[in-house]
Write a protein that binds this DNA or RNA. Sequence first.
DNA 1: GCGTTAATTCACCAAATGGTTAAATTCGCG
DNA 2: CGCGAATTTAACCATTTGGTGAATTAACGC
Lengths: 218, 218
Amino acid sequence: MKATKDPLPETAEPRSRDADRSQLAILASARDEFAQRGLAGARMDSIAARAGLNKRLIYYYFGSKDDLFLAVLERTYADIREAEQQLHLDEIDPVEAIRQLVSFTWHYYLEHPEFITLLNSENLHCAAHLKRSERIQEMNSPLVQLLDTVLERGKRDKLFRAGVDPVQLYISIASLCYFYLSNNHTLSAVFGRDLRAPKAMAQRLSHMTDLVLGYVLH
Amino acid sequence: MKATKDPLPETAEPRSRDADRSQLAILASARDEFAQRGLAGARMDSIAARAGLNKRLIYYYFGSKDDLFLAVLERTYADIREAEQQLHLDEIDPVEAIRQLVSFTWHYYLEHPEFITLLNSENLHCAAHLKRSERIQEMNSPLVQLLDTVLERGKRDKLFRAGVDPVQLYISIASLCYFYLSNNHTLSAVFGRDLRAPKAMAQRLSHMTDLVLGYVLH
DNA sequence: GCGTTAATTCACCAAATGGTTAAATTCGCG
DNA sequence: CGCGAATTTAACCATTTGGTGAATTAACGC
């Protein structure tokens, strides 16, 4: 599912026509184009070219630019929700669970920069696409529930403070990771130092973990 | 300097030609247009119409769309730096200083939504405009220095923990405020609850303050 | 083989877009 | 007043853009 396009038919199926394959190719190239240039900046011709398909196919399968953008968004959310499934916060001790959640969020955003720019584009448009989505319920993260039980366990063990709202904490963890990466370019420019340098990146993860743990602990 | 355009010449100067006034009008309408639609989505015709001026004037004074965008960015940074000057973190006790910093950041973003979307646009473009800015040095926030002294005082008073990087903390405070507002639309859609409701907003400020204080306080 | 349907291509368009050429108008100043 | 420079306007343009109508081609069941 990565952005790298491989035109070579690896499987021994030299089918020249394949609706599914075409749709996936369009979705992948649309995701890259939208992520790179934003909704308004993205070019339908460019998406078709990236996918190596005729532009008309995009309209045949997805209807319009906005519909395509929504499809990309839904796919993007599905991807992160799937990745979150791999996390098993309920099987480890509360402190470690918090650590893992911060680390997971950080690394997911890091490895999926398109997630950030796509969400920024959607927010610029006041989530107009997402609001018309029928699959919007499925996008609610299961991590919030899980985080809630983690906080409960930590509280029971007399480790965590009481009164922590799991939604607020979830948003805060996302904030800390997201903003640093989303605004990396302007921050680096303004501070005149490379916040993407390995050392700075490691410091950031450490700082975020300390910040969150410093809050929930005690 | 607010977005509200008032075509009535309030001062008793009915000059029909005024280069400064025209430039300011363009800058203001450009800021609104860019903030609302992003760089690619913004229309030069629309900016001219908002300003009530001929489109050619934009090119006469600012050269190109990208140059205009940079001018807007520089102005936007100048505005927030000016607002930050009003804060006097060195005159109050460390804990209160942290509180004020969080509160200020929160309210500034809240009252200047264009700040968020403009920065998002610039980051989508990898800060390409800002990097060519000659005034980029002036954009470094004085708050980082100030925050450093606050942290030092807190440490001296045996209130704050040691080893807190002021840049990291400054970014974290910005993160917590920025992300919640920037991604409000998608978050509200996904969580199915209105994060803009007054109660939710108050909770957020309280949560962010607790989070930051819980960390710095020993 | 054959025909029906789905997948794909081709050629095309009206509207919009950033930008420009050149003329017109106003203002400050001697 | 009058003139030169600054400011503003009108008209225009080449290109790009999202989107379509209709023809074409390949796959699949019979």
